[in-house]
Simulated scan of single mutants.
Amino acid sequence: MDPDQIDHDLKAVLISEDQIQAKIRELAAAVEKDYDGRDVLLVGVLKGAVMVMADFARALDRHVEMDWVAYSSYGSGTQSSGVVRILKDLDTDITGRDVLIVEDIIDTGLTLSWLVANLRSRGAASVEICTLLRKPEAVKMAVSVKYVGFDIPDEFVVGYGLDYGEKYRNLRCVGTLAPHVYSDAG
């Protein structure tokens, strides 16, 4: 990966690596306080939440269990079909468990609202959400999010787990892509 090429691909850095790491530590401290004396199961949403989940879990000063889900509501298009297809389900029985969904970004909230309802229907003691990024202007389905890192504009962003064509996930910052990246793809 050529760093000069990647820098050239970004129009702007919205959130730096240092800002992300500081916010992750702040979110972890809030979770530590709220779940004092209770076990919490972290549920990451693949693939985007991998970076957030890893850094968040390491910022917690406790033993944690982690599990992963993957789902799709897009089919082959770029607009949600509204039908959720489970690609990878939990391996853990969540009956009576406190569950914390860890997300990279919340935009429309449609698929996440389905996931919350699904986990609650399985008998979880509680289901809360922690997200690094949220786009308030894009919300179509209100979802209660207890822990929010940053509210950002309704722009397409990449980095820190977020991708464009499966690229840019490994950037340590969050940024917007330069227009030439889109025009090169077409």
Score class of each variant (00 low, 15 high):
1 M>Q: 13
4 D>G: 09
7 D>K: 08
7 D>R: 08
17 E>G: 05
24 I>S: 08
27 L>F: 04
30 A>H: 02
31 V>A: 12
33 K>F: 10
35 Y>C: 03
36 D>I: 12
38 R>Q: 15
43 V>W: 14
43 V>P: 03
45 V>C: 10
45 V>S: 06
53 M>S: 07
53 M>T: 12
55 D>R: 03
58 R>T: 01
58 R>Q: 03
59 A>Q: 05
62 R>G: 09
64 V>I: 04
65 E>Y: 02
68 W>K: 00
72 S>W: 10
77 G>H: 10
78 T>D: 06
78 T>W: 01
80 S>P: 00
81 S>G: 15
86 I>W: 15
100 L>N: 04
102 V>W: 04
107 D>N: 08
110 L>P: 00
112 L>D: 01
118 N>Y: 15
120 R>L: 13
120 R>F: 10
124 A>W: 13
132 L>M: 13
133 L>N: 09
136 P>V: 01
138 A>C: 11
139 V>T: 15
140 K>S: 06
145 V>I: 10
150 F>V: 13
155 E>I: 01
157 V>L: 06
160 Y>A: 14
161 G>W: 11
161 G>F: 11
164 Y>A: 07
164 Y>C: 10
166 E>C: 09
167 K>N: 05
175 G>V: 01
175 G>T: 01
175 G>L: 01
176 T>F: 07
179 P>R: 00
184 D>W: 11
